[in-house]
Computed example of a mutant assay.
Amino acid sequence: MNTLHIEIIGNSNEDCRFLENNVLTAMVKLGITAHVNCIADAEEVKRRRLGCTPVLTINGRVVSQGQNISSRHIQTFLREATDVSQHGDFLSRMF
């Protein structure tokens, strides 16, 4: 399985803290390891043209923006991401 890359992006540490905790909880519950990077920098948010924070990305794909989602909800995204990383994306599975 490929390593998942998760980013939590916010304007401040407070923006990121709650979401980071839920991401780590979801990872533990699913037994998943990933590279988790928290970016708490208003300039980086502006550079990436992100409107609402916090932002959660998995393997470069924005999966949540502007809300602190639950660990249960994050588990859904992680399951999907691990399935895609193991089996390829939809188009590659079709051909």
Results as ranks from 00 to 15, higher is better:
His35Leu: 08
Glu20Gln: 11
Gly66Tyr: 09
Ser64Lys: 13
Thr3Cys: 11
Val62Arg: 14
Gly66Ala: 11
Phe95Leu: 07
Leu19Met: 02
Val84Asn: 10
Gln75Arg: 04
Arg79Ser: 08
Val28Gln: 08
Glu44Ser: 00
Val63Arg: 15
Phe95Gly: 10
Ala42Ser: 09
Thr53Leu: 01
Asn68Ala: 12
Gln86Phe: 13
Asp41Met: 05
Asn11Trp: 03
Ile9Met: 11
Ala40Phe: 06
Ile69Met: 13
Thr82Arg: 10
Leu50Gly: 05
Val36Phe: 14
Phe90Asp: 15
Val23Gln: 03
Ala40Gly: 02
Phe77Pro: 14
Val36His: 13
Asn11Ala: 05
His5Trp: 05
His73Ile: 13
Val28Tyr: 04
Asp83Cys: 12
Cys52Ser: 13
Gln67Lys: 15
Asn37Thr: 07
Ser64Val: 13
Arg61His: 10
Asp83Asn: 14
Thr82Ala: 04
Arg93Gln: 09
Ser12Arg: 07
Thr3Met: 12
Lys29His: 09
Thr76Pro: 11
Thr76Cys: 12
Gln75Pro: 07
Arg93Met: 09
Leu30Lys: 00
Gly60Ile: 01
Ser71Ala: 08
Gly31Lys: 02
Val23Leu: 04
Val23Ala: 03
Asp89Trp: 00
Asn37Leu: 12
Pro54Phe: 02
Arg17Gln: 12
Leu78Glu: 03
Leu56Gly: 10
Asn22Gly: 07
Met1Glu: 15
Leu91His: 05
Asp89Tyr: 00
Gly60Met: 09
Glu80Thr: 10
Gly88Pro: 04
Ile39Met: 08
Ala26Arg: 04
Gly31Phe: 02
Val36Leu: 11
Thr57Asp: 04
Ile8Gly: 00
Ile74Asn: 03
Ile6Asn: 14
Leu19Gly: 01
Val55His: 02
Arg72Phe: 09
Met27Ser: 03
Thr53Asn: 01
Ile39Tyr: 05
Cys16Thr: 06
Arg61Trp: 07
Ala81Thr: 01
Thr33Ser: 11
His5Asn: 12
Lys46Ser: 14
Ala81Asn: 02
Ser70Val: 05
Asn21Ser: 09
Thr57Ile: 08
Val45Asp: 03
Leu4Trp: 04
Arg17Ile: 10
Val63Gln: 14
Asn13Met: 08
Leu30Ser: 02
Asp41Cys: 06
Asp83His: 15
Glu44Thr: 00
Ile58Pro: 09
Arg47Ile: 06
Ile69Asp: 15
Lys29Gly: 07
Ala81Leu: 04
Asn59Met: 07
Cys16Gly: 05
Val23Ile: 06
Thr53Trp: 00
Ile6Gly: 13
Glu20Cys: 10
Leu30Asp: 06
Ser12Pro: 02
Ile8Ala: 01
Glu7Gln: 03
Arg48Glu: 09
Thr82Gly: 04
Arg93Tyr: 03
Ile74Gln: 03
Ile6Thr: 07
Pro54Ala: 01
His5Pro: 08
Leu50Asp: 05
Asn2Phe: 15
Arg49His: 15
Thr53Lys: 00
Ile39Trp: 07
Leu24Ala: 12
Phe77Asp: 15
Ile74Tyr: 08
Phe18Glu: 05
Arg49Tyr: 15
Ser85Glu: 11
Thr82Asn: 07
Thr53Cys: 01
Cys16Val: 04
Glu20Thr: 10
Gln67Arg: 15
Asp41Arg: 08
Val55Leu: 03
Ala40Asp: 01
Ala34His: 07
Ala40Pro: 02
Ile9His: 03
Asn21Phe: 04
Thr25Phe: 10
Asn68Tyr: 05
Leu91Ala: 12
